[in-house]
Design a protein around this nucleic acid. Structure first.
Lengths: 198, 198, 198, 198
DNA sequence: TCCTAAGCGAGACGGTACGTCCAGTCTTCGT
DNA sequence: ACGAAGACTGGACGTACCGTCTCGCTTAGGA
């Protein structure tokens, strides 16, 4: 035996999985999604675009839905963290703008409603939606913690409601009302929220 | 003279389409949706349940997505209008509760995220989403007109934002956070909104 | 009672069937057959070409196969009778040429193999095949009767076999071997047959 | 060196087609044909009986007619060759009986008229018909070569006509006249043919 | 003259099969 | 072992006909 006993996950025999392939698959998923939309997405198409056999995909992702999950996680990982502007007002505006940008500019945006819709019927998919939210939530909880520290926000404020009102409103406006959302619109929303919570 | 000139919609030749069939199809769609979920919905299943040939469905609905549209429209037509409670606060609470009830109790609810997701890639589907919203918007504009008349709301308040914050927050909470929404939660949201806008 | 009892088929009440329609249907069948082949023949296509409702066709012909029968019978009625050339040899040659011409020149030809094939599975169709044969048989029996009268043929010759050898050989050559059949070929066959039977 | 240059048919990538499946499909076609008749033959039925997906059938046979072709070829391959009886008379009788038996006893028989009819409008189908004939022709040409060697037949006899008269007459009698064909009938035909050609 | 009975064009209806397309699995070879 | 290629079962898709069934209209007697 070569490795220290019981330490590493003793590399399995045979040829190791290629990381390039992992990446090629994720990229292909996102490209196909962009081109043909959610339900024009086929495993066969992904395999062809990635230059990969179908089995290779299924070896990594047990089902089509997992493909989406994995691709989405890769995108989320790439997204930005909000800055500390020094005031709750500034932080909320920055967060709002960041969210709007992500929904309207990045390739991630169109996946969001699809993912939410998917969670209604397949609870396992909730994992992805949590990941989608995690970024914002992490950012937001830091923002709010800072605001509480600065005394800008009451310690027992309903933080969850605050988050829901911010993200929910923006989501609704972008994907349901489909009214344009510029920086001034985000500012107006931030104003109202601060009025409501302080 | 046989008919007033240019007036009548000169009934097209041939056997007219049966309204009973229209209804049977819509009902079958909704039932199948309830039983097997969104992507367990098959045209063949709908045809079988409705006791109808597939061609009869395709004669009316060019694609599966149109089936959803038609069924959704039928449901929307059946939904309720909110009452006049005499105060903005009361009206908003009533509206919120009505919305929550519709999303969580009626068969319409689970269709909403799916429909929103669908609008992202098929703009014609926006029609349905407008119908989904029309009910709320009609009710809300009345509510707000009354509030302005009573002097509870500023005449130049951003009504659209108000609506987006109310419905967006509830939507997000129900379908994204998936936190339970009881009457007290709706009340808390109404409180915040009124604080923000008055 | 107006009509002599039990005599005429007392014209049924209501509007009588239109003979123009009968004709339009038969013509349409033959034209469609020529254009799209046997199993490209659709009742809907016939109805459209004839400018007639489908029900009007089904009122006359209980099934698609009856359409073929009716159309074939109309064609058979139009075909020619063989002449009396004064000798068995001349008569047989004339008959053979007539048969070849009908199979290769008229619109009737391509229907023949289809009809024969159809009789294998639907015995009721044998009626049509009999009609197809009737013409030839009638002509042939006259020819042979004359030959017997003239002493050219033995009274107890196997007439059926004679007919089968003549028509069978020509059919096989036209539709199976697909070798060209000119007048000299028919003559050669007639020679052999006379050699065989006299 | 990996392989002799330009020699091997470089096996195509991927899983090869299963010969068992080929066989299962052909068998299923023939069984279905026997059970439900020619136009009771459905691709779906064949797939079910063969325990095979429809795509698997269509991968091999572009259309329903090709199914027939393939099944027929398989049957033809299994059929018998006629013996050498020592005399032209004996050989012709043996061949005739063999043909009659095949048309009336084997599962191949009912396919023959259908196939001939099909060749009228789809020339590619002529391939099958040639296969149908090949057996007889091979046998017959041997028989005739032997007869010429023995001096029973003139070297410049019209062999094609001989064949057409033999097979055409039998075909016509079986499928058109539908008169019973026993051994004596075959003998009578052979007699006439030999009279005609010697 | 009006009434009853049927025929008629049009086209919707319940079915059934078609031929296509994927999902998810399996089988071959080469790496 | 992994990987590319592609065949495999299974099942839904959307299309095309079949034979039947309404529709509103027309065309004949017979009352």
């Amino acid at each position: 035996m070569t490795a220290a006993a019981g330490e590493v996950a003793t590399r399995p025999a045979g040829r190791p999985r290629s990381p390039e392939v992992d990446e090629a698959i994720s990229d292909a998923v996102i490209d196909e999604l962009a081109e043909h939309g959610w339900d024009g997405l086929t495993v066969e198409g992904v395999a062809a675009r990635a230059g990969v056999g179908k089995a290779t995909i299924y070896r990594r992702h047990p089902s089509k839905i997992d493909l989406l999950i994995a691709a989405a996680e890769r995108l989320v990982e790439q997204s930005e963290l909000p800055p500390d502007t020094g005031s709750l007002d500034g932080d909320v505006r920055a967060l709002g703008r960041s969210y709007v940008r992500m929904m309207t500019r990045s390739r991630l945006g169109p996946l969001v409603p699809a993912t939410i819709a998917a969670t209604v019927r397949s609870p396992e998919l909730a994992r992805v939606q949590r990941r989608f939210m995690a970024q914002q939530l992490t950012g937001l909880s830091q923002v709010i913690a800072r605001a509480v520290d600065r005394g800008e926000l009451n310690r027992d404020a309903d933080v969850d409601l605050f988050v829901e009102m911010l993200l929910g409103t923006l989501f609704y406006r972008i994907f349901v009302s489909k009214r344009p959302v510029d920086d001034r619109a985000v500012d107006a929303l931030a104003d109202r929220l601060l009025t409501a919570f302080t």
